[in-house]
């Protein structure tokens, strides 16, 4: 089992969308893919067709000391989804307190799931520093930093680099931080320049350049990932390429998977 934490220092960079579509693309490779929503917005489930009024999720399960197996939803595309779930404010405080005090909370729950060796777990995290991010990064083999090809996103990059440094340094599992530039549009000079700067600064650690493509939004409106909705779109192509590059950093799939 490999854990991939999807992170960003700023909100609104399309992190959840990237997580969902990447999960689809990885699942297409024949892997077992689990997505885990660590963001109280509980938005990840929407990408996989989970009923918006569904309140079950890892928050309630953790508080009730239940196994996460009870809150696994299997999506149409074969991705296993662990939603954050719906909780009231008090419960959320209790939940976050629980995470803060139990440093092995995430590890224990993941181990309990008994995932096969080729499985990939994608962690969707809230933007910026949080209790969720701290545990996600501590558990992660790979961190995937999502940025937009704009000035603000670029300016916020050092913050995320520091967080990754702080939480991942010394973790035996952690191998490296990867970067995805989301919603690029090279007909705009700024977008092009920022993508180029990011590419030159991080080299082959930039594993994805995802084009700004209306198909992604349309896919969400249809409860689908863009690979299923518009397979010939540039964004679908980009996600496939990105999944391919990530797969090269994961152990090869076993025949029994």
């Amino acid at each position: 089992m490999k854990v991939l934490a999807v992170v960003s220092s700023k909100g609104g960079v399309g992190k959840t969308t990237v997580t969902a579509n990447l999960a689809c693309a990885l699942a297409r490779q024949g892997r077992t893919v689990v997505v885990l929503d660590l963001d109280p917005q509980n938005a990840l489930g929407l990408h996989f067709g989970i009923n918006p009024s569904e309140f079950r999720g890892i928050s309630r399960a953790s508080l009730a000391q239940q196994s996460w197996k009870s809150v696994v939803f299997e999506s149409r595309t074969g991705v296993y989804v662990l939603p954050y779930g719906v909780v009231n404010e008090d419960d959320r405080d209790r939940f976050e307190h629980l995470i803060e005090t139990r440093l092995s909370w995430l590890r224990d729950h993941l181990q309990e799931l008994n995932l096969p060796p080729d499985a990939v777990v994608l962690l969707d995290t809230p933007p910026g520093p949080s209790v969720y991010l701290k545990q996600a990064l501590a558990e992660a083999h790979l961190a995937l930093v999502v940025v937009l090809a704009d000035a603000a996103s670029y300016a916020a990059l050092p913050l995320m680099q520091r967080l990754v440094q702080t939480y991942c340094a010394g973790q035996p599992n952690f191998s490296e931080a990867l970067y995805v530039v989301n919603q690029t549009n090279n007909s705009r000079q700024l977008s092009k320049d920022v993508s180029n700067v990011i590419r030159t600064s991080f080299g082959d650690r930039v594993v994805g350049i995802i084009h700004q493509d209306q198909s992604v939004g349309d896919a969400l409106a249809n409860d689908l990932c863009v690979l299923d909705y518009e397979s010939g779109s540039q964004a679908a192509n980009d996600f496939r390429a990105c999944a391919e590059k990530i797969a090269q950093r994961l152990p090869t799939r076993t025949a029994t998977a």
Binding site: D213, Q214, S215, G232, S233
Partner: peptide, 13 residues
Amino acid sequence: AAIRLEDGKVLTC
């Protein structure tokens, strides 16, 4: 190559 249509969709080709 790719084409970006007026409605913002981008098709790979």
